[in-house]
Design a protein around this nucleic acid. Sequence first.
DNA 1: CTGTATGCAAACATTTTGCATAAGC
DNA 2: GCTTATGCAAAATGTTTGCATACAG
Lengths: 136, 136
Amino acid sequence: MTNTESKTAPRRTRQRAAVSTVMATLDEFRTAQEVHAKLRDAGDPIGLATVYRTLAQMAEAGEVDCIRTPDGQSAYRRCSSGHHHHLICRYCGRAVEITPTSFETWANQVAAENGFTQIDHELELYGRCANCALAR
Amino acid sequence: MTNTESKTAPRRTRQRAAVSTVMATLDEFRTAQEVHAKLRDAGDPIGLATVYRTLAQMAEAGEVDCIRTPDGQSAYRRCSSGHHHHLICRYCGRAVEITPTSFETWANQVAAENGFTQIDHELELYGRCANCALAR
DNA sequence: CTGTATGCAAACATTTTGCATAAGC
DNA sequence: GCTTATGCAAAATGTTTGCATACAG
């Protein structure tokens, strides 16, 4: 109360820890449903809604990345570090993490030219990966 | 049975023409729902399902590109268009149109490094415009 | 006339939300 | 004990599908 800006750290619960652990061990993007199934299989009872809520919060907190699979599901993967973007294959959905170096520079320059500050951006690249190029 | 590979051209219907026309005039990605609303507003009665079906077919035929929006909707845009991007003020919503020149180069280079072809991108810049910087 | 495209509504799949209960702090 | 997190199920979304009808070829 009183303070609109106060942010309390999420409570340490078994479920949250479980999701964190699973995400920490995964290198690939996984949907909320897959994470949920994995936890259930591991004998870790958890509600689907809780997985959704937890993953959304982790994404908000920048602990995991969130993309959309070609068939419209949300997929999450732990963040390697800092701010980055993805190069996504529109055929198989494979995503490559890319580090925007020159891009950040370009963005800031364009912003400055237009008198903008506090720049943030949303960027995704879509294309056809080498594998899918062969398949066709 | 005849030919498994035979593909009949879709019939010329008012609805299909309408969707085609709308897509031809748009430079930005639009969701099926937006396209549907736009047609309805233009006094062109069409069913939502038809819009979905038509856009899916157009995407299949390579007439439009399909991506997923961050909130999970399918968005379509006609292929290869001289599109542009926006620099959007998150306070007042003012949008400045920007032309990605060096950015395109950068994107293509990154893509090539990762073995990707047929590159397309989704980019929006958000910030605080000069006006809103003063106001605060 | 024959068969495909449409419209509507119901079916679907995924994600979100309301509310009572359990648990952290 | 006061509050937040959880679980369940219902609701909300966005999309697809079944089927009768309209219409292009």
